[in-house]
Structures are given as structure tokens and as C-alpha cells.
């Protein structure tokens, strides 16, 4: 044992393959998150407000990317995207990662909307705001924490995603987990340990933000002090693609 040093972090940030991988992850994940949040939130509003025959089935289909084994989704997207020129492209990865993140956004935002009193939005409309204005001025501030949670889930899903990336990405689109995957296969170098530490810090940060958001939601609903806390349903669905 020769004491501690930051040498392996230097190695991580000094090596272009690692920094490129980090950069790719930081390009792909936010874009995938944005796409998943916009599409998922719109759909969640529609699903909460409208009732029509076959809705339960539609919901099951919309959240099914969550239960289909991710290797199957990966192979399917790869074979489908290749002839379209989307494999080995950033666009293809963003679309695929957004697809994987959408179910988390739907379930989290839907759960939040169920506690939302839509009469508030109606009241705003009666006071002369248009539907879009009512959404931004009334609905969004109240259901915001739910959307933020959904976004964090979608982000974490994309930021940890290996399997679909394995099929879809060309060497230029290596993401951080993808790079770690091949690194662990070879041998576990201290640089991997440095990368792992960075990911653990990120996980801790995500967990703290999420806990904070959850408490905010509870307070808004006035359930903070109650004995039965709302089950962390969103969390359950996290990690489903992993392994």
C-alpha cells in the first residue's frame, strides 16, 4: 500500500477515450430525457383526462418497453434502424434511449396528476387564461415535482444504459457505461474504479434530488405527516432494464 493519490482520476480525465465516452453520455442522455419528458408528459395528461374504450390496453402497451427484456428491444431496434441509416448515429441512440425512458415518465407523471385537482386549471380558465397559459401558470408548478422525478428516472435510465447502446452505437458513440462494460470485460483497472466513483457520486446526487422532490410532492398533497407514506412506485420501475 503506497497511500492515496488522485492519479487514476487524472488518467480518467486525461484519456480521450474516457472523456469522449463521458461527452457522448452527456450529449445523448439529456436529449433522450427531453424527448421522453415532452412526449410522456403530454400523453400522461391525455391519459388522465380522457376515458375511452381500450384505454387500459393502450396504457399497458405504452409502458411495455419497461418489461420487454432489453436485449430483445436492442436487437429489434438494431435490425429496424440499420436499413434506415439510424444505427451508429446519435439520433438513433437518442430515439432508443427516449423509448426506454418514456414508461418512467408516464407512470411518474400520471401518479402526480392523479393527486392534482383539475378544477384549479378550470378556475384559471374561468379567470381568463387560455389552456396553454393555465398549464404553465397553474398545472405545471403543482405537478412540476412529478415531472422532475420522471425526468430523473429517464435520465438515469439513459445514463446507465448498456445493452441497446451495445447493439446500436458505433465506436464514435461509445457512452460511459458502454466503455465501462468493455473495460470490466478485460480487467478492472483503477481507471474503472475512478469512473465507478464518479457514477456513485452521481447516483447519490440523483437520490438526494429525488427524495427532496418526493417530500415536496407530499407536502403539496398534505400527506407529509401521515403514517402511510405513498409507496415509491416510480423507484420500483427504475433499474428494470439493467442487469
Amino acid at each position: 500500500m503506497s497511500g492515496f493519490s488522485l492519479r487514476w482520476y487524472e488518467e480518467f480525465f486525461g484519456s480521450t477515450t474516457w472523456t469522449d465516452a463521458l461527452k457522448n453520455s452527456l450529449i445523448i442522455s439529456p436529449l433522450a430525457t427531453l424527448l421522453a419528458v415532452v412526449l410522456g408528459t403530454l400523453a400522461a395528461i391525455g391519459l388522465t383526462r380522457a376515458s375511452f374504450p381500450g384505454k387500459a390496453l393502450l396504457v399497458s402497451i405504452l409502458i411495455s418497453p419497461m418489461v420487454v427484456p432489453v436485449v430483445i428491444s436492442g436487437v429489434a431496434i438494431y435490425l429496424f434502424f440499420s436499413p434506415l441509416g439510424l444505427s451508429g448515429s446519435y439520433l438513433g441512440l437518442v430515439l432508443a434511449h427516449a423509448m426506454l425512458g418514456v414508461p418512467f415518465v408516464i407512470t411518474t407523471v400520471t401518479a402526480t396528476l392523479q393527486g392534482f385537482d383539475f378544477n384549479l386549471a378550470r378556475a384559471a380558465s374561468s379567470l381568463g387564461v387560455g389552456p396553454v397559459g393555465a398549464f404553465f401558470k397553474v398545472t405545471l408548478p403543482i405537478v412540476g415535482p412529478g415531472i422532475v422525478s420522471g425526468a430523473l428516472f429517464a435520465f438515469a435510465t439513459s445514463f446507465d444504459e448498456v445493452v441497446v447502446t451495445l447493439f446500436l452505437a458505433s465506436p464514435e458513440q461509445q457512452t460511459l457505461p458502454r466503455k465501462m462494460f468493455s473495460g470490466i470485460r478485460d480487467n478492472i483497472s483503477p481507471t474503472i474504479a475512478a469512473a465507478a466513483t464518479i457514477l456513485v457520486l452521481l447516483a447519490t446526487a440523483l437520490l438526494l434530488v429525488l427524495e427532496w422532490q418526493r417530500r415536496r410532492t407530499e407536502q403539496m398533497r398534505g400527506t407529509a405527516g401521515s403514517a402511510v407514506r405513498p409507496p415509491r412506485r416510480g423507484l420500483l420501475r427504475r433499474r428494470m432494464f439493467e442487469g
Binding site: L42, L47, R49, M99
Partner: peptide, 30 residues
């Protein structure tokens, strides 16, 4: 109003059709 709300679901439904359902379907056809 109902149609408007159903309209909100359509973008996501189309998105998943292209990125998930169709690929899975064509995989199963293979």
C-alpha cells in the same frame, strides 16, 4: 375536449410505434 386529450396521446403513440412496436413486430416476423 375528449378528442383534444386523446390528441395529446397520439405523438407518444406514434413515437413508440416507430421506435418500439414496429421493430419488435418485425423482429418477431423474422
Amino acid at each position: 375536449t375528449k378528442l383534444k386529450y386523446i390528441g395529446l396521446i397520439i405523438p407518444l403513440a406514434l413515437f413508440l410505434l416507430v421506435t418500439f412496436l414496429w421493430p419488435i413486430g418485425s423482429l418477431l416476423y423474422r
